[in-house]
Simulated assay, not measured.
Amino acid sequence: MLHDPVYREKYAQNLKREFPRIPLYGTSPADFWHWAAWGEALMALHIGYEAVAPFPLARTDTPDEKARAAGLPPKAILRADPAAGCITLDTETTLRGIPPEAWTYKLGNRCALDWVLDQYKEKKPKDPTIREKFDTYRFADYKEKVIDLLACVTTVSVETVRIVAAMKAAGR
């Protein structure tokens, strides 16, 4: 019920300052079980997001000759292009075929895919001593894990948008 867009819109002001209250939708037990099934599906998606079937994203790998010649890993980019439905991970790898629905699912004010990309960006500490001794994170070490995570998060996003749309269309 708390994911229902109609509920969120109707009680937007209350939700800013109070605990949410659960409304009773429908007039029959069948209506209750319909909403319960949506809730169960959303919980399964969000709690077990790493175990969902990965979305079939098209991966394109083009070798970065300059980086390879210099003996370096490809440069991390981690940029999303919702209009084109693609994510550029680094100078070699691009993921395509991300549906528009995946970009509409938000965690707070950001798309779930953008949130994942932001968490894996390489950030350099300002202090030179810390940068020298403790800056060991390299995106190339986690690239395959991030690709798998993005495919799973895409599935979760698309399914969540589908379920929420069904909630919005349901009678109350």
Results as ranks from 00 to 15, higher is better:
69 A>I: 01
63 P>Q: 10
94 T>E: 09
63 P>A: 11
128 P>E: 11
143 K>T: 04
88 T>P: 02
166 A>T: 03
134 F>S: 03
17 R>Y: 00
153 V>W: 06
149 L>P: 03
36 A>H: 05
33 W>G: 02
70 A>I: 00
89 L>Q: 04
5 P>T: 10
51 A>N: 15
33 W>L: 14
24 L>E: 13
154 T>C: 12
46 H>V: 04
9 E>Y: 13
71 G>F: 02
154 T>P: 02
77 I>V: 14
84 A>P: 01
89 L>M: 03
62 T>G: 06
33 W>M: 12
137 Y>D: 06
81 D>I: 01
19 F>S: 14
77 I>E: 08
118 D>S: 15
165 A>Y: 04
38 W>G: 02
72 L>N: 06
89 L>E: 01
13 Q>D: 14
75 K>Q: 11
25 Y>G: 08
50 E>Q: 15
61 D>V: 13
169 A>E: 15
117 L>Q: 07
47 I>C: 02
60 T>G: 01
111 C>N: 09
36 A>F: 13
109 N>V: 04
155 T>Q: 09
8 R>T: 01
71 G>Q: 05
90 D>S: 07
71 G>L: 04
30 A>T: 08
11 Y>A: 11
105 Y>K: 03
33 W>E: 15
53 A>R: 12
120 Y>P: 04
42 L>P: 04
25 Y>H: 11
102 A>K: 07
31 D>K: 02
80 A>E: 07
32 F>G: 08
56 P>V: 00
114 D>N: 12
35 W>L: 01
30 A>Y: 10
48 G>A: 11
35 W>I: 06
5 P>C: 08
54 P>L: 10
43 M>C: 11
23 P>S: 08
158 V>T: 10
41 A>C: 07
171 G>K: 12
84 A>T: 04
13 Q>K: 13
108 G>W: 03
123 K>C: 08
91 T>L: 04
142 Y>Q: 14
134 F>I: 02
64 D>M: 00
75 K>D: 00
12 A>Y: 09
125 P>K: 15
81 D>T: 07
15 L>H: 11
122 E>D: 15
34 H>Q: 15
51 A>L: 14
80 A>Q: 00
18 E>T: 12
102 A>Q: 03
7 Y>E: 08
59 R>L: 14
38 W>E: 02
157 S>L: 08
8 R>Q: 10
45 L>T: 06
37 A>F: 06
60 T>R: 12
90 D>Q: 08
18 E>C: 14
160 T>Q: 02
106 K>A: 14
11 Y>P: 02
107 L>P: 00
15 L>A: 12
17 R>H: 12
12 A>V: 09
138 R>N: 08
55 F>Y: 14
58 A>R: 01
157 S>W: 06
23 P>N: 10
6 V>Q: 01
7 Y>I: 01
44 A>S: 11
162 R>W: 02
162 R>G: 00
83 A>D: 10
126 K>G: 14
172 R>A: 08
169 A>L: 12
70 A>S: 06
139 F>Y: 15
77 I>C: 03
35 W>P: 00
131 R>H: 15
95 L>I: 00
115 W>I: 10
29 P>F: 13
156 V>K: 05
25 Y>W: 13
96 R>K: 07
86 C>R: 10
66 K>P: 02
